[in-house]
Amino acid sequence: MKTELSISGMTCGHCQAAVTKALKDVPGVQNAEVNLQDGSATVEGDASAQALIAAVVEEGYGAQIRQ
């Protein structure tokens, strides 16, 4: 399953790395790609969208399902 997220608050490569690590640490995530330029993340695996969003918010960034 692929989940697309919009991420807000990222301003640098460190932010991108922090969000990527947070997403990859969620149980059930097989891969996570975070794009700093357009503020998006693509996550593969069976983790719920709520768990992914909670992980990003816990790192101090905003997240929502990408429409």
Rank of each mutant, 00 (worst) to 15 (best):
L36W: 05
T11V: 14
V57C: 10
R66I: 02
Q67F: 06
V26P: 00
V19A: 00
H14C: 14
Q30R: 12
I7W: 02
K21W: 13
K24E: 07
A18S: 13
S6M: 13
D25Q: 15
D25V: 12
A54F: 10
T3F: 02
K24D: 04
V34Q: 09
I53T: 10
Q50H: 14
L23F: 03
T20F: 06
N35S: 09
A47S: 00
S6V: 14
V34C: 04
S40R: 11
R66M: 08
K21S: 15
D46R: 11
C15T: 02
D25Y: 04
E58S: 10
I53P: 02
L36H: 02
Q16R: 07
V57R: 05
L52C: 00
D46G: 07
Y61F: 07
P27F: 04
S6W: 04
E44K: 15
G13L: 06
S48P: 05
D46T: 12
N35M: 06
Q50V: 08
A18V: 09
V57D: 08
Q16D: 10
T42P: 02
K2N: 10
T42R: 14
D38T: 13
A47C: 05
K24T: 15
V57G: 09
M10H: 05
G9F: 12
A49W: 11
Q67S: 15
A18L: 13
V43P: 00
